[in-house]
Design a protein around this nucleic acid. Structure first.
Lengths: 215, 215
DNA sequence: GTATATGGTGAGCAATCACTCACCAACGAA
DNA sequence: TTCGTTGGTGAGTGATTGCTCACCATATAC
């Protein structure tokens, strides 16, 4: 995986519209990478599935590496951008409860992931498989997410809706659950979507745990 | 990945003791697979790292596939076996509380994973990456784990320690959290171990969630 | 002694890999 | 027309892949 990762693709992202064949390549690559993983998919396979010549792939994307990034980066940016917007919105409408915020947050995430299920698969697979890629995105994501979410946690904390765990711990544990929740459903269970009832159960789990309230 | 997966390795597992070189191959493969993933590691690399010829690998393990299984299956079996034993122990000492059971359970899991950190990495990477392998192990694991843990959940439920969520849901959500918890720590954060305080926080999260008890 | 088995070697194999390049077709600008 | 640009092609390339096989060394069995 080459360096200068963001710069390399930054231009391409908000670029001129794609060719028809270019789009076909993207779709085929997403499907195949999601299925068998980046390392187990050859460019010849992608070309065949997309109905183009192998040369076309390299004309447009230069290398297999950059094809992967052309898939992942827009997804990554879009997700972060949406979460940032939600964070801002929450900040300016201070009457939402913790429960309502959580519910909306999970609902939005679930919908976005369901819409981009294959890309999410590609992304998670490569994040787990490729150490360099993970390290490059990890610091970036951790920084942005923590910056967006920590203030929100702190606000609910001051409103008395949270226990006395440190805000970082709350965020850390909740993230572990939410990550596990979506990965098990979309990846391991191969679900097409997550139902509203499941979201409710998840909200309840995060808020109250599994112990009976009376105990 | 070939069929007849368990049979193929069943003999090998409780087999005669390994040669020194055979052991070296295993260790090198574990290290390299954990680092770069199965698909990105060549048998030539493994041979070099183990200080043996490439032929030796194939003499002992037959194929790259079966080398991977020789790494994963014993780990897999050991983990399931330990959990089954704990389940049995809990069943016969009915005075443990839910909290104490959870704490012991997480402690034991954390220790086992810390001791076999590299194999855990290999295992998770391949479970995420390789669909066939995942499907083969998924049903097996789900069956055994659910069989061992569902009765326990039900017992705590009848003792009134659990809320009114269905036992399957409790198990499902808790598993999502526990999975996320260990994967983030051992894989994403690259930890060598999980501290006792972290375990306590996790127990508390599972039992009570993040909401203040007064609310 | 001879035979058989076991552990180990490394040159060599066919297949596959990501990638290149010379070339073609279409098209708007000069 | 002539030219440069852009999208597209597919045969070809060197490197690498997992794996085989003829061969060697040691040791136990007969």
């Amino acid at each position: 995986m080459s360096a200068g990762l963001y710069d390399a693709l930054l231009a391409r992202i908000q670029e001129k519209k794609k060719t028809e064949k270019q789009q076909k390549v993207l779709e085929a690559a997403i499907r195949l990478f999601a299925e068998k993983g980046y390392a187990n998919t050859s460019t010849a396979e992608i070309a065949l599935a997309a109905g183009v010549s192998e040369g076309t792939i390299f004309k447009h994307y230069g290398s297999k590496d950059r094809l992967l990034l052309a898939i992942m980066l827009p997804f990554f940016r879009e997700m972060l951008s949406r979460m940032a917007k939600e964070a801002v919105r929450e900040t300016f409408s201070s009457q939402t409860t913790l429960e309502q915020f959580l519910r909306d947050f999970l609902r939005n995430r679930a919908q976005f992931l369901a819409e981009n299920r294959d890309i999410f698969r590609v992304m998670f697979k490569e994040l787990v498989y490729n150490n360099e890629l993970r390290d490059e995105l990890k610091s970036f994501a951790a920084e942005h997410l923590q910056a967006a979410l920590l203030p929100i946690v702190n606000r609910f904390r001051m409103k008395g809706e949270l226990g006395d765990l440190p805000a970082e711990t709350v965020l850390d544990l909740t993230a572990a659950f939410v990550g596990g929740f979506f990965v098990t459903r979309f990846l391991f269970m191969d679900r097409a979507a997550v139902s509203g009832e499941e979201i409710e159960e998840a909200v309840r789990f995060i808020l109250n745990g599994i112990r009976s309230r009376g105990a």
